[in-house]
Simulated scan of single mutants.
Amino acid sequence: MDQLWPCHRGCDPPMEHDRNALIPALSALADSGRLRMLRLLERAELSVGEIASALQLPQSTASRHLKTLMDSGWLSRRSVGTAHLHRLADDPLPEPLRGLWQSARAGLGHSTQLEDDDRRLSSVLAERARNAEAFFGRVGGEWDQIRTQLFGRAFTAEALAALADPSWTVADLGCGTGDAASLLAASVKKVIAVDREPAMLRAAQKRLEDTGNVDFHAADLESLPLETASVDVAFILLVLHHLEDPQKAVNEAARILKPEGTLVVVDMTPHERKEYREIMAHRHLGFSADQLKDWTKHCPLDLAHSRPLRPDPNAAGPGLFVARFSRRENA
């Protein structure tokens, strides 16, 4: 038996070694998204952002598929600056991967989806080749990641807060741990943070202990300890679905707003996740556009604008909306 294989005792026979190497390669071809990806990477060397654009995938999904294909031997990668460019490994592919890919590619056939992939790839490649914007064409889908590595995540929201009028008094109603209050405090005259939960309020106070223009109040949103017409802008962010009667909180927000003041509400669009009632004490499974309009019938607010927020591919919860209400001047 020692003479059957030209290797040291204990080594695997060649056929067994090849079989073990083929298992992950075969497994990687079991996903149609990865097959579409290989089809494009046979034609062009692409960054993860370009692949995500061509296949209309979230970048996180494209990255996950690329890792599987890299680990199973289907792809090679090289770095250009901060970008990583991927292509089908060692053109032509070594056997037996070449035969596997030829069979898999033939099995894809022709479809509208593949034609759309080709059109989007052509657009991606055309954008890359245009002019000095080629860099951003190559790494556009990765730019958020690059920018985050260089500058962090907080600066965009903090910079946008500078749009606020520095003379404003802003009420953060249902402030939680002070996320919104911490962003606004540096840009406005005063922030009033209100929450009914003592633990939340303590966390907010700790977070903002070095900020001198934030007042804290432990109170229900249905009965605010604030003077009428004392606030320029009020925020209610992901709070109303916890309240038995959201209308009362909206009425109170309207009361404390100055004439022509603004109320901003962020909450969930209608959904069917009934388990949220039990596990997170939700009283309402989102709010419809008609419900937003109905609130204005019972208080001196007009619905100026509302729209769904773009979904975050990494978020697990229901969709969100943002609504902006304006207080009637002479109401």
Rank of each mutant, 00 (worst) to 15 (best):
M1V: 13
C7A: 11
C7W: 07
H8D: 01
R9N: 07
P13D: 15
P14H: 09
L22N: 07
I23S: 10
I23R: 15
A25L: 15
A28F: 06
A28D: 10
S32F: 02
G33R: 05
E42M: 04
E45Q: 11
S47N: 09
G49C: 08
A52K: 00
S53Q: 13
Q56D: 11
S60I: 14
R64N: 08
K67D: 08
K67A: 09
L69S: 00
S72P: 09
G73I: 02
W74L: 05
L75V: 01
L75F: 11
S76L: 04
R77H: 08
S79C: 09
T82V: 15
H86G: 04
L88E: 14
E95A: 14
E95N: 10
L97Q: 15
G99N: 12
A104K: 01
R105D: 08
R105A: 09
G109W: 04
T112F: 06
L114P: 02
L114I: 04
D116V: 08
D116A: 12
R120L: 01
S122W: 14
E127N: 06
E127Y: 13
R130L: 04
N131M: 07
F135Q: 13
G137A: 11
G137H: 06
V139M: 05
G140R: 12
G141K: 02
D144H: 15
R147Q: 15
T148S: 15
R153Y: 09
L160G: 02
A161L: 03
D165S: 09
S167I: 13
T169H: 14
A171M: 06
L173T: 03
G174E: 05
T177H: 08
A180Y: 00
A181T: 07
S182H: 07
S182K: 11
A185C: 09
A185M: 03
S187Y: 01
V188R: 14
K190T: 08
V194Q: 03
R196Q: 15
E197F: 14
P198D: 00
A199F: 01
M200I: 03
L201P: 02
L201E: 00
R202Q: 06
R202N: 04
A204N: 05
L208M: 10
L208D: 12
E209N: 15
E209K: 15
T211P: 03
T211K: 01
V214T: 07
D215G: 03
A218F: 07
A219R: 08
D220N: 07
E222C: 09
V231Y: 04
A234Q: 05
F235L: 15
L237D: 06
L243F: 14
D245G: 01
A249R: 11
A249W: 02
A249E: 07
V250S: 13
A253K: 11
A254L: 12
R255N: 06
I256E: 04
L257T: 06
L257S: 06
K258I: 08
T262H: 08
E272L: 06
R273H: 06
I279A: 06
M280H: 12
H284T: 03
F287S: 01
S288L: 04
D290C: 10
D290H: 15
Q291D: 05
L292S: 02
W295P: 12
D312F: 01
P313Q: 04
N314H: 11
G319P: 03
L320R: 06
V322G: 05
R324G: 00
S326P: 02
A331R: 09
